[in-house]
Design a protein around this nucleic acid. Structure first.
Length: 471
DNA sequence: TGGGGTTAT
DNA sequence: ATAACCC
């Protein structure tokens, strides 16, 4: 930790010996030493998490709902509810039946169509991308932002101003005292200010509230963001890392340790963080494989060197529906047509072209309590790809034909079958060609927007058009 | 238990 | 193509 602190007297004796003769300015020296020692520069990561996201979007859409206990429902499940509903005992992923028994005055809205949530979700990500391009989405309501660079700039400015006054924004985990002589502390405090600016921007520009966590890696930032809810933020200083990790009462609470791994670890007698930390690595590797074993054991110490990977536009677009029963080819075709129509609409708005289609289904087996899915996929013929998005030609029926072929690869319709879910997914999305000779795009090339007029020439901006299309 | 997503094998 | 993970 020597190079990060910028303090003298904490480096190895070997470094101290040649250091006095070194004429390199301190700033560059720090970087050099940090490179020599092989330590990565201290990262500052923000995790943001919107408060009961679907419920918030619904209340925005219909302000009458504000102040009332509200649940967002998908099929027979409450997938999200606002805090008014939670006070009445409603929990996430509770059955609608149970929720209604708890409080009959509950307002239910159907949230099976994700369009509104998806659109708002990308607005949030886009807003965060204004702070740093390094934004990674996690689901529709969470983002990681690597603000190391921004913090670095503010730190330099702080040092130029000679100002030693910095105030933390929001909570400090464990109420730990801040040491402003410790540059790691100062970086995280600056991170807390940026996190507050992010939340303020979300509130003023999108009318959304949420939590944020600031720490030195993704795992820690995510764990700490939930300590004060709703609509609050928390920063974790390194000295409290073990307390945060120790506060988890079960390994399943660690993001990255899922259902399967938890079950296998339980069979090994591992349930707590401490047990995972001290479990013999060779045995862990034998049970879970080297990759998973090493990763989760590092996680148990709060170590996570995974980068914030910019999500960019989605890798796939899918639409699905679940139901009690679907048992005839005719029904299947009907469902597929519905899913496809929605997807083609989304594809048009996206602007990119999929080169792969996939059909996924779930079969009902009385024995099969564990819902397993099967899928078949295939390339989309290029003549169909070209017709996509032009709007005029009928692209539905050839795609339905393809999907029905995929269906027949999984289901023998001569035999009885019982489906409970269908999913259609477009993937392998590629930007449409813009520079093919003979196309309008070849002649309508955007002029570089660098002219001092600030007026980009020939930019056609469609309202709602995504930013990931080439011009 | 929904309706989405991602990456690794 | 599936299995694991995330929300």
């Amino acid at each position: 930790s020597g190079p990060d602190t910028g303090e003298e007297g904490r480096k190895s004796p070997a470094l101290q010996q040649w250091e006095p003769r070194c004429v390199t300015p301190p700033q560059a020296l720090q970087k050099w030493v940090s490179w020599l020692v092989g330590t990565a520069p201290h990262r500052v990561i923000v995790h943001t998490d919107l408060d009961c996201f679907y419920a918030q979007v619904e209340m925005l859409h219909n302000p009458e709902l504000r102040g009332k206990p509200l649940c967002v429902q998908q099929k027979y499940l409450v997938v999200t509810c606002n805090y008014e509903a939670r006070e009445l005992g409603v929990k996430k992923l509770m059955s609608v039946k149970e929720a209604n028994e708890k409080c009959p005055q509950l307002v239910l809205v159907n949230g099976e169509d994700l369009t509104k949530y998806r659109e708002m979700s990308y607005k949030v990500t886009a807003l965060l991308e204004e702070f740093s391009p390094l934004v990674e989405r996690l689901g529709f309501d969470e983002n990681f932002v690597d603000i190391t660079e921004m913090v670095g700039k503010r730190l330099e400015q702080l040092q130029r101003d000679g100002s030693s006054k910095v105030a933390v924004s929001g909570h400090v985990y464990n109420n730990q005292a801040i040491d402003l002589d410790d540059t790691v502390h100062v970086r995280l405090v600056l991170g807390s200010q940026i996190a507050a600016e992010m939340r303020e921007a979300m509130h003023s520009r999108l009318a959304l509230t949420g939590c944020a966590g600031v720490a030195s890696n993704k795992l820690l930032s995510k764990l700490v963001s939930g300590t004060f809810k709703p609509n609050q933020q928390t920063v974790l200083l390194p000295e409290s890392c073990q307390d945060l990790i120790g506060s988890l009462d079960h390994i399943k609470k660690v993001p990255g340790i899922g259902y399967k791994t938890t079950k296998r670890l339980e069979l090994l007698g591992v349930r707590t963080m401490c047990e995972l930390q001290t479990f013999p690595p060779p045995l862990l590797e034998k049970e879970l494989g080297v990759s998973v074993a090493q990763r989760i054991q590092k996680l148990s110490y709060g170590e996570d060197d995974s980068p914030v990977t910019p999500s960019g536009p989605p890798q796939s677009l899918s639409d699905e529906d679940s139901f009690k029963k679907c048992s005839s080819e005719g029904e299947v075709k009907k469902k597929i047509e519905e899913l496809l129509a929605n997807l083609l609409d989304r594809l048009d708005k996206d602007g990119r072209k999929p080169h792969t289609v996939r059909l996924t289904l779930r079969q009902f087996f009385p024995t099969n309590k564990w819902f397993t899915r099967e899928s078949r996929q295939c390339p989309i013929p290029s003549h169909i790809i070209q017709k996509l998005g032009t709007g005029n030609c009928d692209v539905m029926s050839p795609l339905v034909d393809i999907l029905m072929k995929l269906f027949h690869k999984m289901i023998n319709v001569e035999m009885p079958f019982h489906l409970t879910l269908l999913n259609v997914c477009f993937s392998n999305l590629k930007a449409p060609p813009t520079h093919t000779k003979g196309s309008i795009g070849f002649y309508l090339t955007r002029v570089s927007p660098s002219s001092s007029s600030g007026q980009p020439a020939l930019v056609t901006h469609y309202a709602g058009a995504p930013g990931w299309l080439p011009s």
